[in-house]
Simulated assay, not measured.
Amino acid sequence: MSVEPRHRDLFDLSGRSALVTGAAGGIGAAVAAALAERGAAVLVTDIDGAAAAVTADKIVADGGRAASAALDVRDRAAAESAAAAAAELADGTLNIVVNNAGVTDPAMFGDTTEESVLRMLDIHLMGAFRCAKAALRYLPTDGTGRIINVTSSAGLVGTLGQINYSAAKSGIVGMTKSMARELARRQITVNALAPAAATPMTATIRTDPKFAEQMLNRIPMRRWAEPREVAGAFVFLASDAASFVTGQVLPVDGGLVM
Rank of each mutant, 00 (worst) to 15 (best):
V20H: 07
G158R: 03
T45V: 04
D111K: 14
R16V: 03
G15E: 07
L237F: 09
A87D: 01
S17F: 08
L183C: 11
A198S: 14
I219S: 06
V150N: 11
A34L: 05
A32E: 00
T199F: 14
A154M: 09
D62W: 06
I205W: 14
L13Y: 09
Q187R: 15
V73T: 05
T151Q: 08
A132V: 01
G161V: 03
L10T: 04
N191S: 08
A225V: 07
T21I: 01
G127E: 00
S178K: 08
G155D: 05
T202I: 10
S243G: 03
A70K: 11
V98N: 09
V42G: 08
M258G: 10
I47L: 11
L35S: 06
L89M: 03
A69W: 06
R16Q: 13
D142N: 12
E115V: 12
R6E: 14
T144A: 11
A53Y: 01
A107N: 12
V20A: 06
S116G: 09
A132C: 13
T45R: 00
A66W: 06
A61R: 11
N164S: 14
V42M: 08
G247W: 06
I147N: 03
R228W: 12
Y165I: 00
I172F: 13
A82L: 04
V245E: 01
D240T: 02
C131P: 05
D142G: 06
R228Q: 14
L13H: 05
